[in-house]
């Protein structure tokens, strides 16, 4: 055994077994305990169906715009930039509507707004990239994916789908 292995083992043995969380977690746990597992799964399943439906719609949209309409046309059809704007506007409306709907519902995690902000930053980064390359369908898919994650996050923290052990 090398000196490093010995020191590492000593440090491992000395690691504390307990580490108290910085905040009281019991309230959120109690809320989660009160929610029957069956009821918790149903909204999430519906959310899943909506996500699938949204994905199908997105693929159809992207295929249509990607192969037929992406180049700017003199007839005034939607450009990539206009599609991004439409997607963003629609998403913002859906997001705001959900946030209003859940105003009085306690969230089970405290950092969900930070995650929401992180996703906002991701969306902004993609939109900036799309600004440079408006017809990039891969970027459009990524933007749609981020938007879906935001919606899923808002729904999950207010109506959690508990994982199975």
């Amino acid at each position: 055994m090398t000196n490093f292995d010995q020191e590492l083992q000593q440090k491992l043995d000395a690691l504390p077994r307990n580490k108290a969380p910085n905040r009281d977690l019991w309230r959120g746990i109690e809320l989660g305990m009160e929610q029957p597992a069956d009821e918790a799964v149903k909204p999430a399943s519906r959310g899943g169906l909506y996500a699938i439906a949204a994905s199908i719609a997105l693929v159809a949209c992207l295929s249509w715009f990607g192969f037929n309409r992406m180049p700017v046309t003199p007839s005034g059809q939607l450009t990539g930039t206009e599609l991004v704007q439409a997607l963003s506007q629609q998403h913002e409306q859906q997001k705001q509507s959900l946030l209003v709907q859940y105003t009085d519902t306690p969230a089970l995690t405290e950092n969900w707004q930070a995650q929401l902000t992180e996703l906002d930053q991701a969306a902004n980064a993609i939109k900036a990239a799309l600004n440079e390359d408006p017809d990039n369908t891969a970027l459009l898919r990524m933007l749609q994916n981020v938007y879906q994650q935001q919606i899923a996050l808002i729904e999950r923290v207010h109506a959690p789908k508990w994982q199975q052990i």
């Binding site: 580490k19 969380p21 959120g28 746990i29 989660g32 995690t109 950092n111």
Partner: peptide, 30 residues
């Protein structure tokens, strides 16, 4: 809670994630 949180923190490397995961553990455990 201290033991669960210690393990979650070491696995996630993130305080907020570890606390959320700890809640998740105790809800599922119930």
């Amino acid at each position: 809670v201290g033991r669960v949180h210690a393990l979650s923190y070491r696995l996630t490397g993130d305080h907020a994630l570890a606390e959320d995961a700890t809640q998740e553990v105790f809800i599922q455990l119930w």
